[in-house]
Design a protein around this nucleic acid. Sequence first.
DNA 1: AAGCGTTCTGAAAGCGCTTACAATACGGCT
DNA 2: AGCCGTATTGTAAGCGCTTTCAGAACGCTT
Lengths: 346, 346
Amino acid sequence: MSRSGYTIYDIAAEAGVSIATVSRVLKGDSSVSEKTRLKVQEVISRRNYRPSSIARGMTSKTTHTLGIVLPKLLNPNYAMIFTGASDGAWAAGYSVSLFPWRSITDQEGNPALLLAERRLDGVIVCVEYLPPHQQELLGRSLGELRQYMPVVLIGCVPADLDYPAISYNMAEITQGIVEELIRLGHERIALIGGMEEDRDELRRDIGYRQGLEAAHLPFVDSYRVWCGGTAEDGEAAMDRLLSSLLPSHWPTAVIALNDMVAMGCMAAARRRGLQVPEDLSVVGCGNLFCAPYLVPPLTSIDTHQQQLGRRAVELLLSGEKRREDARWEWVRRDSCGPAPLPKEKT
Amino acid sequence: MSRSGYTIYDIAAEAGVSIATVSRVLKGDSSVSEKTRLKVQEVISRRNYRPSSIARGMTSKTTHTLGIVLPKLLNPNYAMIFTGASDGAWAAGYSVSLFPWRSITDQEGNPALLLAERRLDGVIVCVEYLPPHQQELLGRSLGELRQYMPVVLIGCVPADLDYPAISYNMAEITQGIVEELIRLGHERIALIGGMEEDRDELRRDIGYRQGLEAAHLPFVDSYRVWCGGTAEDGEAAMDRLLSSLLPSHWPTAVIALNDMVAMGCMAAARRRGLQVPEDLSVVGCGNLFCAPYLVPPLTSIDTHQQQLGRRAVELLLSGEKRREDARWEWVRRDSCGPAPLPKEKT
DNA sequence: AAGCGTTCTGAAAGCGCTTACAATACGGCT
DNA sequence: AGCCGTATTGTAAGCGCTTTCAGAACGCTT
């Protein structure tokens, strides 16, 4: 209990040397004689002394702590990024602090206040879609933050933002999915979710339209449904979609914003009597741990979130100022199959 | 980019006052005249100055950072605890750093090294079952850690460990589940997962046996299966269980360590042609976000993990040295139903 | 024994902020 | 004008460590 209060002075005194010498053995300086080193180390380990990294930070201007800002840790996608970041950081002797999303977008007073005061050695910011007025706020916060520490962005990052960043190229991914679905014979393909991102090169829409266009399929407005990122959102969106159409026009395939939304879609479809994948193919994104255990097991796009977190830390620590796209990869399971044969029932 | 290098000296010089005065307006000391305060604040906000919390920590001996140590952030249960902790911490002006499990159990050299050096204002440690030799190591690490900062434990914490703690009373919970299942007519109830915890008062086994005993049901050894905490583990364990028994002796209900294990169990059961809940009732624990979207929706025990994380922070910051049990609550969905009528087919 | 090049050590000056404690300023009173 | 109490502000001493620079020790050489 008694808060251990040893300082370098205590150790120095007990070992009969100066604090400079203790400091030297602490950092493994070779200019300390073997004899002295042993003596000092003995005291250190007997007293269980640990130098204060706060004091060290005073001179080194370093905290060995990184920050991560993300919208919602309960979203397993972010938990994966965090995990990867933490692993990478730990391997390099750093730890990672979580900062809630509002720490960087709160209106009240000074935006990045706490974050900037913390003098972290770097911050990873996971960017989600924001309404325009918040975007501007975020921009300012990031700018201010960057005066104090390196910042790396993850997510749907506009290309003209000159931060080091790893982005999901949702346009490319979505186009890839559309093409695959078309290859499977689907012609009525719905796109569910994905707030409107702000830059063309990243918008799911672009990929979606391009994919359709390439196959000379029409873009049907009612097959494009917006929603948030939770399973509930997905369920509601799917409900809306199906309600708004005659069953004969129901899509035969759905591309979901992420796996949670996909879960919701499948639930809504099931409630309407649709069989997945016989009547409806569903593709998710993110490849969550539960994807293989859904019924049917969910086909998803793996975006290698953990790897992505690690990579963000690398960028942060190396100071490389580059932008990269996240890798992505199909994980084919059973929720996605050939289009049903047209039955012309209605 | 140019790392903002303002110090309190710069601000003081520019405002034409002493650093003491700047420090005073920084902390809102009322002994500064209105005129001076405005002048100083003007400079501060014009220069966008943020006092370094490192330097502040020097004198205050405070980092406004808490730590959390947990086995695996990818386990949503831990993500929930972390989220709760982070919310609570943030509300009190703190942030929370993640430390990997091995930061406290690694053999190599000094155990709690980094953690202790960090001089956090407190640490939450989520304890899982550990093999005996690691338990001892953990004990030592915690002891050392506690010399430097308050520690709160979460999980299956032995009652004789005199740390402030919030524990799951798995015995009570498991007994509650058994009783409910018996009430539904089940007589062959399996218990899957849960490494052997080390203290009687916490062991699932105890609750399991007591529940059976109270209803004069026999304890059948082969209905007790051990496994780790992932869906894969659960699937494998369920497979082992079913393989080892004649179908006529298959359990009609399964209690799973957690929801992920429950997911695995359901998958394994389904593969054997068992219908949930008609042939087999499944109860999980943790009430994950995906529980409602499994097929059938999973009945689970909600242990209020987020609330628990918040509470842990409260204990940490208040210094209260007490032990509490986590609240728990049934979340009844469809994976759990009346026992099938005995068909005596084999 | 004196001289010299190495090795080791120690003294002291920060790092950026907080906080007694001392000093100054100001307003009002006699 | 001379005093005093209060409201402000400044000075300086840390906080626990790192690091530069200088001094002490030691081992050889001649």
